[in-house]
Design a protein around this nucleic acid. Structure first.
Lengths: 233, 233
DNA sequence: TGTACATCAGTGAACGCGCGTTCACTGATGTAC
DNA sequence: TGTACATCAGTGAACGCGCGTTCACTGATGTAC
């Protein structure tokens, strides 16, 4: 990877610079407010230059979304690693990774979920792969606990809870004072409660209230994980 | 309320017509894509006419958000009515009302949460009142169950789950085929699980696993509520 | 009931702006010989 | 190693467009007398 040479006539790495600029702009103005000309300006290049690398504005937006999905997938997969030893801790890491991604990469996250605006739900790529991993994770966690759990429902609930917390937090609607109301804490406890609570819903009717052992390892993650610091972005 | 007289020089009810047009446009294009000129066009009026009723584009947007909050509050409060007889059913109605509002009034919902875009989190009105009602509802439901529940956390989790399901559903990311994965079902079961599961988290450590009676009335709402039909909008 | 007039609520033309995109061009790069 | 030339990756000027907003205006309405 050669470093940017900015002095010459040629940029050297304009494509990457445009993607980086677009990420930043999408984070600031949203996918609708994002502007190709402003991205060119950020890359210190004329307004026509981007057309050497992208067909049009939408193509750059789509490229950002594509990379966002890839990076998202990479991080969540990495978080799930080691799940065979401790599925609860791995799932906990996955949740942390989800919120961290949404917080640290708002440009990616916004592009992924809103590429083309709420109206254009057509040919946009979907997070199938990543979401499949989430669902598999839920199954693996729920199954050994011996609970009658609909893993698919649980996966969507966990996803919605993560997405809801991420967007409410980004919108500044969660109180940042109280440590107990931080998104990561709400997600950890929330998913734990979803897993525990879901098992009781219908099996309690069938099995008539046998005592349940809560999975303790899911409740308390290893404290002091690194990478949880506030990023200055 | 006099009906619109469209033939004359005066519109008759332009302010209302503009708000209605803006709601529709925000639903279609989002709060950023929404256009004052297009709203005027929809109201069959010149581009300058809106300035007789609103100071600028943002003022119309803000008015839509304001009405959205009011209507939202009205519906959720109505859903909560009768909570003293059956808090579980009332809370269930509240959840249904939340999702129904987000689905049937996407213009209001988008304006409420994104007024001014994700960057302008400044002077926007916040759903304090409504959210306070949600929190009070959680407390009232959780308390008689005798569970050691942090009602505030639970309220935020329920909110995030509702918001997440509403936005994922609006983005077309939830599978619409499976009846078990409908937003309303996921929310009902999810909130039920959150309430059941949250109680066990720390009280199970303190009280050492006394058997808990799940609140059955929370699990199953009265079926066949009217107003739950698909709205053709 | 009729008239003069103030006020209200529109019109339509115009403005400046920023955007997406195109086009002929030109400087830089790399390669064949 | 040096030169001719094709190709690549930029420039900058220009376009058409739609937007937000302003402004002088004008038709409709309502009220005082």
């Amino acid at each position: 990877m050669r470093s940017f040479r900015r002095q010459g006539y040629h940029h050297g790495n304009l494509r990457e610079a445009l993607v980086a600029a677009a990420r930043r702009l999408i984070a600031e103005c949203g996918p609708v407010g994002f502007t190709l000309i402003e991205a060119a300006r950020l890359a210190k290049v004329s307004a026509a230059a981007p057309y050497r690398h992208f067909e049009d504005r939408d193509a750059l937006l789509a490229e950002v979304a594509r990379r966002g999905f890839a990076e998202f997938d990479r991080r969540l997969t990495a978080a799930w690693k080691g799940a065979e030893r401790d599925p609860g801790a791995a799932f906990q890491r996955m949740g942390e990774a989800y919120l961290k991604f949404a917080r640290d990469e708002p440009g990616y996250y916004a592009a992924m979920f809103a590429a083309g605006g709420p109206a254009a739900t057509g040919q946009r790529p979907r997070p199938k792969g990543t979401f499949g991993a989430l669902q598999a994770a839920i199954t693996q966690i729920a199954a050994p606990a011996g609970q009658d759990v609909d893993a698919r429902s649980l996966a969507y609930q966990a996803w919605a809870l993560s997405h809801g917390l991420a967007t409410l937090s980004a919108a500044g609607l969660l109180p940042s004072r109280d440590a107990r109301l931080k998104p990561a804490v709400l997600l950890r406890d929330g998913v734990g409660a979803l897993i525990r609570g879901a098992g009781g819903k219908r099996s309690s009717a069938k099995k008539a209230g046998g005592p349940r052992r809560p999975r303790r390892q899911t409740d308390r993650p290893s404290p002091g994980r690194k990478g949880a610091r506030e990023a200055g972005g």
